[in-house]
Amino acid sequence: MDNDQVLLEVKGLQKFFPIRKGFWQRAVGQVRAVDGLNFHIYKGETFGIVGESGCGKTTASRCIVRALQPSAGEIHFRVDDGEMTDIANLSRDELQPLRRHMQMIFQDPFSSLNPRMTLFDIIGEPLLVNGVTDRRQRVERVEELLALVGLRPEFLQRFPHAFSGGQRQRIGIARALALNPSLIVADEPVSALDVSVQAQILNLLLELQERLGLTYLFVAHDLSVVKHICDRVAVMYVGRVVETAETQQLFESPKHPYTEALLSAVPLPDPTLRSQRIILEGEVADPANPPSGCYFHPRCRYAVDLCRERTPELEEVAPGHAVSCHRALELDLAGTLDAPVPQTAHS
C-alpha cells in the first residue's frame, strides 16, 4: 500500500461549532466536533471512518469535501495525478474547478434528491454547471450513468418520488459519478436502507470501484459493513481518531480499548456466537465539554492515572497501525476474528 500514491492527506483537521446564547447570540463555548484529525487515503483504496453518533465522522467528511469550512488544519488533495493542493482554506471560487474531483454520496435517499427535479436534471446538473451545455451530450451521459448504476435509461424524465429507497441511492451514486471524480465520500450510504437492499448497494459500490478505479472515503457506524468494504479503517471517538489500521489487523488485534469494546458490542446474526460482551459504562463524552486527558478514560476499564492527566498522541505501534492510547503496547485486547468462522444460514 505504501508504494501507492496518496490521494488525500488530512492534517490536524479541526471543526468547532460555536454555542450561541442570549439576545445577541454571543458565542459562550464551542462544540469540538472534529478535534485534530490526521489520516491519509491512498489512491484506489477504501478508507473507512467508524464511530458512534456525535463522534464527528460526518462533520469530518463534510469538511473534507468542503461543504463545511474547517476551523483549522490542512486537507491536501491530489488532482489528476499532479501536485497535492491544500483545499482547506480555498474560497468558493477557487474550489469551483476542484469540486468535480471529489463527490459525495449521502445517507438519506429522500433528502438527497431534489423532489422537484427529474432524474435528467438531477444527474445532469453537475455536467451542466461544469460546462456540458449541449443537451444531447448530457442526455447521452446521463443514460450511460443510469445504466452504470443499474437503472433503466428510460427513467430519465421521472421524478425521484417514483423510486424506492434503494433506487434513489443508485440515483445519488449516478450523480456523484457524473463528473468522473477520483474520490467519493460516502456518508453512511446504506444505513437508511432495508437489510435486503443494503447488500445490493454495497455490491454496486464494490463493482464501481473495480470498474472505474474509484477511491472511497466510507463513513459508517456499522462495523460489519466497514469490515466488508474497507481496506483501512480509522476509529473515531469524540472528534479524534483513536486507532487506525488495515481492516483485517484492526478487527483481529485492536490496540485501543474503545475499538475492542466497539467490536465486541456488535450483535452478530448468529445465535451460536452469543458471548460475554464488553459492556461499556456510561455515555459518549460531550464534545462541548470533554473530559481531561484521554477522552475515553471515564469509560475505559484499563484506565490508569496517566490517562486522566495526559492526552495520548496517535502513534504507530506497528507498520500502518497507529493508536492513541498510553497503554497500547502493554494491553492484550481481544479482536473479533479469534472466534471460529461459523456456518451461518446454510445454502
Binding site: S196, Q198, A199, L206, K227, H228, L268, A345, S347
Partner: peptide, 29 residues
C-alpha cells in the same frame, strides 16, 4: 438461523455482511 428453510430467511441472512465473511466480494442479494 442455523437451518433456515424459507428462501426469504435464507437470502436475507446471506445478504448481511458479517464480520466473519470474506471482505470485498459481492454479497448474495
Amino acid at each position: 438461523f442455523g437451518e433456515s428453510k424459507h428462501p426469504y430467511t435464507q437470502s436475507l441472512l446471506r445478504s448481511i455482511p458479517s464480520i466473519h465473511s470474506t471482505p470485498k466480494v459481492q454479497l448474495p442479494t
